[in-house]
């Protein structure tokens, strides 16, 4: 074990828009979109929510679950591609809101959809070296898709926070090991000051998502000498509802292993929060001594893979959890018009 998960928290905004509502506006065939992307609906933030507010809600749930004093958090990182400020950290606002200031290091990270898992790795290093007692790693996003673009069906909002520590006796899950795979692959990007991202269409699949997710997952399993059938759960980054199922199949995982960690069909792609939220949903139900493979993916491109094993403490600390499904099931649907208002997609707003 390199480090352990001491507590975790999730948050998904209350608003949803159905894929068929978006498809009707752009003249697309709803069934083709829903079956093609395997996305039925996605989460939409309230008009007064952004990456900072989502991150704070997830961080507070993680603190409540862990039971630690926020002053003991020595490092706090927020991974996101939708930080509200270009300059001024999300992390300092979150640290202040949870009462972790002033004696900690904090910074914002960006690596498309994988900055949340990069934050987990940074915290692992800091706690394992003894530089800090606890680190908090957050993946949070309120991602945007250009109106009419395929991304509009998937780009959604959510946050997941993990408190990482060193002591095995405090951990609800051990992080056995981690492995990363990174290359310069221009599959998806957003230039400074641009409102919406651009992507390489079909290029985002095979040379980007699959190459990195498969390589990192294989590398992780080789490093730990584990086989797909030894895992109880596998969570992959989920830009749509299809890619993770395909990646799982290519690696030799069954759909049963993937089921619990796949949320995109019902909340969309929460970007930096996507695979961390998948893990949170697994931890919400996992019994002790269950093995989990987690592999993120961020365009640009890279994947971080983790082998995680739950401990006996997971059952004992279950009471402190605010289950992710409480947020997922408490929803209110928006029309496309209200969605445009929520996401400030009109230039005059």
């Amino acid at each position: 074990m390199i480090a352990g998960i001491i507590g975790y928290g999730a948050y998904v905004p209350r608003y949803r828009i159905k894929a068929e509502e978006i498809a009707a506006v752009w003249g697309e065939e709803p069934d083709r979109i829903i079956s093609g992307l395997n996305i039925k609906e996605k989460s939409v933030p309230a008009t007064d929510e952004d990456t900072v507010t989502l991150a704070v809600e997830a961080a507070r749930n993680a603190l409540k679950h862990s039971g630690i004093d926020p002053k003991e958090i020595g490092a706090l990182y927020v991974g996101s591609e939708s930080h509200p400020y270009a300059v001024k950290p999300t992390a300092s606002i979150v640290a202040e809101a949870i009462g972790a200031t002033p004696n900690l290091t904090a910074a914002d990270l960006e690596f498309a959809c994988k900055a949340g898992t990069a934050a987990i790795q940074m915290c692992m290093g800091l706690v394992a070296s003894g530089m800090v007692k606890y680190g908090m790693a957050i993946g949070a996003d309120t991602s945007q898709g250009r109106p009419g673009d395929a991304l509009e069906y998937s780009a959604s909002a959510g946050a997941a926070a993990y408190i990482i520590g060193k002591k095995k006796e405090e951990a609800i899950a051990e992080i056995i090991d981690t492995y990363s795979f990174t290359t310069d692959t221009p599959d998806f990007w957003r230039r400074e000051g641009a409102d919406f991202p651009q992507h390489g269409g079909r290029f985002t699949g095979e040379p980007a998502y699959f190459k990195h997710v498969i390589s990192a997952s294989k590398g992780m399993m080789e490093k730990t000498k584990m086989k797909p059938e030894e895992f109880d759960y596998a969570v992959f980054h989920q830009p749509n509802g299809k890619f993770p199922l395909q990646a799982g199949k290519m690696l030799g995982f069954s759909s049963k292993q993937l089921e619990r960690g796949l949320l995109t069909p019902i909340i969309g792609n929460t970007y930096s929060a996507a695979s961390p939220l998948g893990l949170a949903n697994v931890l919400d139900e996992a019994k002790p001594n269950k093995k989990i493979l987690l592999t993120s993916f961020g365009s640009g491109a890279g994947s971080d893979s983790f082998v995680i094993r739950t401990t006996d403490l997971i059952d004992k600390k279950r009471k402190g959890i605010t289950p992710l499904m409480d947020y997922v099931n408490d929803k209110q649907y928006l029309s496309y018009g209200l969605y445009v208002k929520h996401r400030r997609k009109l230039k005059s707003m």
Binding site: D48, E49, D50, T53, V56, E57, R60, A97
Partner: peptide, 8 residues
């Protein structure tokens, strides 16, 4: 009711 963290 309980508090929520939002943009003001």
């Amino acid at each position: 009711v309980k508090s929520a963290f939002r943009r003001i």
